[in-house]
């Protein structure tokens, strides 16, 4: 089995709203795959289709070699899910929920469970709403991580965690990766995706707009340069892939696409560089650009 998840041209509508409109997603076995997109892009819908909770209107979905709609219960023995919104039963303690979910998945590693409860600093005796949102999420995270499964599907698992717990979460996902398990991690938190993910799929309006390794995606991004030059920066405007150029005497700021970086730097050094800072492309920029530009593109 090469791919843990194979989604092809997935379509799903709710009434007249198209939630998924030809989405593709491939997650190789053993990788940590980032699943990025703005609110309402269709991340949770995709995950619910993968879990067999929603029925696809069209397209092909393959999960761990099976059909998630038809073989839901048997496939679910091999995966664990952390929902974006965790709601616990009012009269069950967190510890009971962890054990119950683990048992229903087909088994829970008690030692690992206790260790995770400790590491996430979770009080397993509390009930239902006495947990904060973050703590409810920890219950679901511990239950998922303590289960002996090959695939973890997590829908914005850290949206309620504080930075300390976020770090713990990243550590535990690293451990999961080292164990050779597969993770599909939907997220808004780009630093998390940068730190954890081997590959990333970006979706928008129910379609995959980009997929690849972080290195693959960086070609889409620009480097921000600000420099103080020996002379007046003539000629920069004539460069093709330079954006947002601002000239203030001998000082200059601009963004340049990675492909033209070399050319732009050569031009700067030909004038003479006194001071130069460059910002590497962050996923934030990649993200923002993607959406703002597609937005402009679709608006025109």
């Amino acid at each position: 089995m090469k791919n843990a998840i194979d989604v092809n041209d997935l379509r799903k509508s709710f009434g007249s709203t198209k939630a998924l409109d030809g989405l593709d997603l491939t997650v190789a076995a053993g990788e940590v795959h980032g699943f990025l997109g703005p609110n309402g892009a269709g991340k949770s819908t995709t995950i619910r289709v993968l879990l067999g909770l929603l029925r696809a209107d069209g397209g092909r979905v393959n999960l761990l070699g099976g059909d998630p709609w038809r073989d839901a219960a048997s496939l679910h023995r091999r995966l664990a899910y952390v929902p974006g919104d965790v709601n616990l039963w009012p009269n069950l303690s967190g510890g009971e929920v962890i054990d119950l979910l683990g048992r229903l998945r087909g088994g829970i590693d008690q030692r690992r469970r206790d260790e995770l409860v400790e590491r996430f600093d979770l009080d397993p005796k509390k009930k239902g709403r006495t947990y904060s949102k973050g703590n409810r999420q920890k219950v679901a995270i511990v239950a998922a991580l303590a289960s002996d499964v090959e695939l973890l599907i997590m829908d914005e698992p850290t949206s309620g965690l504080d930075p300390l717990m976020e770090a713990t979460f990243q550590q535990t996902v690293q451990e999961v990766r080292e164990q050779g398990r597969t993770v599909l991690l939907s997220s808004h938190i780009l630093a998390e995706v940068e730190a954890l993910c081997d590959r990333v799929s970006i979706i928008r309006n129910g379609r995959t707009v980009e997929t690849g390794t972080l290195a693959d995606l960086r070609h889409l991004t620009r480097t921000s340069i600000s420099a103080e030059l020996a002379g007046h920066p003539n000629g920069l405007t004539s460069l093709e892939h330079v954006h947002d150029l601002k000239v203030d005497g001998n000082k200059v700021r601009f963004d340049v696409e990675t492909d033209s970086l070399d050319e732009a730097l050569r031009m700067l050094t030909s004038i003479g560089v006194r001071n130069l800072t460059s910002q590497p492309p962050t996923l934030e920029e990649l993200f923002l650009r993607h959406y703002t530009e597609t937005e402009i593109g679709s608006a025109s």
Binding site: W89, N91, S93, E96, D99, L100, L104, P124, K125, K126
Partner: peptide, 29 residues
């Protein structure tokens, strides 16, 4: 806000042995 005058008492840290089926959960509920 969100709380009652009667507040939930803490529960067990671990689930009882029997809490391992959808019916066991339904019974609790």
């Amino acid at each position: 806000v969100g709380m009652g005058l009667i507040q939930a008492k803490p529960g067990p840290a671990r689930a009882a042995h029997g809490l391992r089926s959808p019916f066991a959960l339904a019974w609790r509920l």
